[in-house]
Write a protein that binds this DNA or RNA. Structure first.
Lengths: 336, 336
DNA sequence: TTGAAAGCGCTAACAG
DNA sequence: CTGTTAGCGCTTTCAA
């Protein structure tokens, strides 16, 4: 019994009448143990309700079974789903997950978060490179620690799992152009850097089509920030199609446009990104891009595992999100 | 240097020309150290980029700085916000947070999750008692470990932070009744138990008003499950007001009602619960109950801290959610 | 104020 | 197959 009242491995050994290492052997399966002793040990473990101490194990074996996720946020849709995907994959492999939130890219804040995290015995770290705090945190991870970046700008220096947002944004923009819109306006969510896949793909599609490239409008993460933007967009007769950086913002923008007296999609087409569960229930149902965030998390974890045990050396995983056409986009009609 | 290439406390000691315990003393502040040596040690720590190992610390000191959150889900709105609230409060107190997901109340799954969690050196555990997996997990936490339940049925055996959902549901139902509705129908989200605050408050208000109590309809967590329910409700002329267990379901129900050709709130009033960020952007903006989930998480962490260090013995914290009246509810009008 | 010694709970050699 | 011996990185006695 230790100070917290938990049985220890030596309690088990004593009860089973074997040595401590023998107990360890049945626990880890590191060596063969005779069936007789194994049974004794298992019985003792069950009787005592013994649980091995991860701290002691990590200390001596250097094979920690914990990974840390560093994220700028834990509750927004894409973040939460990605974290869920990592957690599920990690759990399936017997890993425990620890979460550290870094709310700003402020150096002190990042340092503090990293320090708190690295204090733990970690098999590796997954960083959500969705935003500036994520980018800043990734830069501070010590080189010897296995790491994977989820999303973000391509960087060969680090294993990375991404969703090919640029390709999807390109496809969505092209779709709008094909519908007959002269150009497509764009409302951005706070980008992780100067470059942002959604914006890049949008611009690329416009350029390729020879369409004018309007200035992108910046929204915040708060869906309400889209309302004022929607109103302003509605006031400009040149605006017939709007591509928003995520579904929440799109919903805000739609509300602003509607409040201004225009109809969607008759007067203005609006598309989002992410395929939030509420997107298909919106009125009108929102055209968007389905992003498999949970899958992103799962692929990221696999890459991290590769980096940890080195069996597989794949370091990059990209998946193309899927366009979901719904009723919020249509061919332009001359405004009444 | 240990095997992972990290400097250890003895590297620091060697570099500073002092003993290991002296380094430990400046680290923990457990005893006075002469300014001269302290400076030497601090310089060595900085030079080496030394970070104490939480595993070793936890092993010897039995004062772990990690708490575990056990949750049935990490990405749904209320869950994610609550987790965020706990994380923020914990971080402010120097605690690291670990997350374990228990997806079903299945005994094996719960046991496995608990076992994986308890293996870590933990100061305490916060359980989201939002659903059956949460309830099942709570029952399995060993008695010596400090624990707090977030939400759920009142249980004096465990420190608990709640949102008084019954009071809020009662208030909302009464509001609908006061508007002139003969009764209020109710669509439930999967309850954590037979009793569920939202349903209880709804029923209480109806009974007190002498209004008929219709059978509650069960939805799943998927907002789409609300659509079919909405259609069915629309087919019943007796339905003029619907109170839904959460906003997502309410959005699905509204869509079903609209698809059936009825208008909201003219033909049917619909109210939700939670005040999802999208609720106010919905058409029409959704009447709901604002739940401060992040605050719930924060209060829960405080209670856990009380249980851990025993300075304060408060074990219960309840807060009354706030009614938010918007355009989805109105006085009943005879259907055309 | 400081160092030497002991030991947290466990796994990794190493004999036997 | 199994026990003995070390020792992980740290804090906690205990003397000095």
């Amino acid at each position: 019994m230790n100070r917290a009242g938990n049985p220890t491995i030596s309690d088990v050994a004593a009860r089973a009448g074997v040595s401590v290492p023998t107990v360890s052997r049945v626990l880890t399966g590191a060596a063969r143990v005779s069936p007789a002793k194994r049974e004794l040990v298992e019985a003792a473990i069950a009787d005592l309700g013994y649980r091995p101490s991860a701290a002691a194990r990590a200390l001596v074996s250097r094979k920690p079974q914990t990974i840390a996720i560093i994220a700028g946020n834990t509750s927004r849709y894409g973040y939460a789903e990605t974290i869920r995907g990592i957690e599920i994959a990690a759990r399936a492999e017997g890993y425990t997950v620890m979460i550290t939130v870094v709310e700003s890219a402020d150096e002190d804040e990042v340092d503090r978060a990293i320090a708190a995290t690295l204090t733990q015995p970690l098999a590796g770290v997954a960083v959500l490179k969705f935003d500036p705090p994520g980018v800043a945190a990734l830069a501070k991870i010590p080189p010897h620690l296995p790491v994977v970046a989820l999303s973000g700008v391509r960087d060969p220096a680090t294993p990375q799992a991404v969703l090919d947002e640029a390709a999807a944004a390109d496809e969505l923009t092209r779709h709008l152009l094909d519908l007959g819109h002269t150009t497509v306006h764009h409302v951005r969510v706070p980008p992780s850097r100067k470059v942002d896949g959604r914006t890049t793909g949008w611009r690329r599609a416009l350029r390729r089509a020879g369409a004018p490239v309007p200035a992108a409008v910046d929204a915040t993460w708060d869906p309400r920030s889209g309302v004022a933007i929607g109103r302003a967009l509605a006031a400009d007769p040149a605006v017939t199609a709007v591509f928003c950086g995520n579904d929440e913002i799109a919903m805000g923008v739609m509300r602003g446009i509607t409040e201004a007296g225009l109809r969607i999609p008759d007067d203005v087409s609006v598309a989002g990104f992410d395929d939030n569960p509420l997107a298909e229930l919106w009125s009108p149902p929102l055209t968007t891009v389905e992003q498999d965030f949970a899958g992103l998390g799962g692929r990221g974890f696999q890459l991290l595992l590769n980096a940890v045990d080195g069996t597989d050396d794949r370091r990059y995983s990209s998946e193309r999100p899927r366009l979901v056409l719904r009723a919020s986009t249509a061919a332009p009609k001359p405004r009444a």
